[in-house]
């Protein structure tokens, strides 16, 4: 993170890493956030994807450098590329596949080996599919996610890239956590709703 003063414009750069099993929508989330578009087709990430998103707020330019690691195990050796110097790491899982949530444990362990200071986030994707699950499953997954989130001391966010639910909010919460700023946003904690726990 660096701050620059040049001709009235202050610059802030943040590096964000996206980590998690394959086919849960890491690349989709990145593309959605940076370009605002969503594509149903699946394209496997080979290695690492990288995108920059600049946001100008009055005299400040915030640059998110988003690094997205392919979920296949063979790309684990590129993990340092994504996690080193990252301000925040999004540990992502598929809300409709419990196994992807369970893998978070291992991902977290791996990332912490390289970066001990990054702020962790627990992000569940495909909320739009999640609401079609049985209520029992929703309870189970939500509770499990809360348990993980507490253990990691990480904010928990359920999002839907295709329906633009909680996508922008993820990055706003990152900003509030990174600079320790107060966020006037209501938490969402009820099962079945897109969970938003960050306090």
């Amino acid at each position: 993170m660096e701050e620059e003063n040049y001709e009235q414009n202050n610059q802030v750069a943040l590096k964000i890493g996206l980590i998690g099993d394959s086919q849960i929508g890491k690349t989709s989330l990145m593309v959605k956030y940076v370009e605002g578009s969503f594509d149903e087709d699946y394209i496997q990430t080979l290695g690492v994807n990288f995108m920059d998103k600049k946001i100008q707020i009055r005299n400040t330019i915030i640059t998110f450098s988003i690094w997205d690691l392919g979920g296949q195990k063979e790309f684990i050796n590129m993990l340092p590329l994504v996690s080193n110097d990252a301000v925040a790491i999004l540990f992502m899982f598929d809300l409709t596949r419990k196994s992807t949530l369970n893998s978070i444990k291992e991902w977290y362990r791996q990332v912490r080996g390289f970066n001990k200071t990054a702020i962790p986030f627990l992000v569940g994707t495909k909320y739009d599919h999640f609401i079609d699950l049985s209520f029992q499953d929703q309870i189970e997954i939500t509770q499990q996610a809360k348990k993980f989130g507490n253990a990691m001391k990480a904010p928990i966010i359920f999002c839907s890239t295709s329906h633009s639910i909680n996508v922008q909010k993820i990055f706003k919460i990152i900003l509030s956590k990174a600079f320790d700023l107060k966020l006037n946003l209501d938490e969402i904690i009820n099962v079945g709703e897109p969970i938003l726990i960050f306090k």
């Binding site: 802030v12 605002g36 707020i57 909320y127 909010k169 700023l181 966020l183």
Partner: peptide, 22 residues
């Protein structure tokens, strides 16, 4: 910078859809 970011993150109109619609 902090002031600017505060304005940004607390802006309700952020482009996300309302989940109630879904």
């Amino acid at each position: 910078i902090f002031n600017d970011i505060m304005v940004y993150i607390n802006d309700d109109n952020d482009g996300d859809s309302n989940y109630i619609d879904l």
